[in-house]
């Protein structure tokens, strides 16, 4: 369990098939009370009991942050993933009870921005939906550039265009449309902040382009949740609790620690926030550092590990847990 924020017991109020790959889920509090207000770009961790396997996946909140009657997330089905999205798609139906975390924001808008320039790819549209709802209420200036494979897969594009008109530009891969990023980034007023959420390749492309055009690092924001990668099973010794655990092929190290009944901190479960950082007491082998948190030096030194996404191959790994 993490730093003490209350978990929210919810009931699934609605499940909507948005397109062939994406379903939208609406959660309301089981006790009928209001949800906390949140800030655009926040996510929650959804706690699932997948037939005996505990899955906790982060999803961006896409509903209006001021709407306290419920929260909505959109989930893209990942047929090759570890199973969280498949569980939501196949087994979660209206009326079911789940538990979600309180909202956490690792992708907030910069309140100083004169203009918010948003670039979304595919399911990466979700955090922008809540941000746009908040900006619309407060009169903030924004522009969204949204790319998707096909019109059918461009979730919420019609609704966004209807509401916000020419503040929204859509780019469809199958029609050969692509964002003219150089031109877009060169034509922005001073004080613009850039936000990107989408596939890894797109985030890298946007950040590199912005850097080469001289955008200050502090004006460029991205969010990428890493799904914990699958891999070979491995053994880990937990020195503080005196246990030796085996991490399964489709299990994360954090999940294996939790399954062994050991209390470990976490927030994002996606390698971004740093909360689960753990001291490595002994390492004979290779840690696959998959996180965005540790510095390159720390990664080489093998003195820290982020158990939410990182794995190990070798003889011995001893952690301070």
């Amino acid at each position: 369990m993490s730093v003490g924020a209350p978990k929210i017991p919810v009931r699934v109020a609605e499940v909507v098939e948005v397109n062939a790959l994406i379903k939208r889920f609406r959660f309301v509090r089981r006790d009928g009370g209001p949800m906390p207000v949140f800030s655009g770009g926040a996510h929650v961790v959804v706690d699932m009991d997948d037939h005996g396997t505990r899955r906790m996946n982060p999803y961006s909140l896409m509903s209006d942050p001021a709407d306290t009657s419920g929260y909505e997330i959109s989930v893209r089905r990942d047929d090759a993933g570890r199973g969280g999205s498949l569980f939501l798609h196949r087994h979660v139906t209206p009326g079911m009870d789940l538990v979600i975390s309180s909202p956490v924001n690792l992708f907030p808008l910069d309140a100083r921005a004169r203009k918010h320039l948003m670039i979304a790819g595919g399911i990466g549209i979700t955090p922008f939906l809540s941000q746009i709802a908040a900006l619309s209420r407060l009169g903030g200036r924004f522009e969204l550039h949204y790319s998707a494979r096909t019109r059918d897969l461009a979730a919420y594009a019609d609704d966004l265009t209807a509401r916000h008109g020419d503040k929204v530009r859509l780019y469809l891969d199958d029609q050969g449309q692509a964002i003219d990023l150089n031109r877009l980034l060169q034509g922005q007023p001073l004080g613009t902040h850039l936000y990107v959420c989408g596939p890894k390749g797109m985030i890298g492309w946007v950040c590199r382009t912005a850097e080469s055009l001289g955008w200050p690092k502090s004006a460029v924001h991205s969010e990428e949740f890493l799904a914990p990668p699958v891999g070979l099973p491995f053994q880990v010794q937990l020195a503080t609790s005196g246990k030796t655990i085996t991490v399964g092929p489709a299990q994360s190290l954090l999940e294996a620690i939790e399954a062994a009944g050991v209390d470990a901190p976490y927030l994002c479960r996606g390698g971004a926030c740093g909360e689960c950082e753990t001291d490595v007491l002994g390492c004979d082998g290779q840690i696959a550092h998959n996180d965005h948190w540790l510095t390159d030096e720390q990664k080489v030194g093998n003195t820290k590990i982020m158990p939410c996404v990182s794995r190990f191959q070798g003889k011995t790994l001893i952690l301070d847990r």
Partner: peptide, 8 residues
């Protein structure tokens, strides 16, 4: 503090 949570 950077990870201080809403409601906590």
């Amino acid at each position: 503090l950077l990870n201080l949570q809403l409601g906590a």
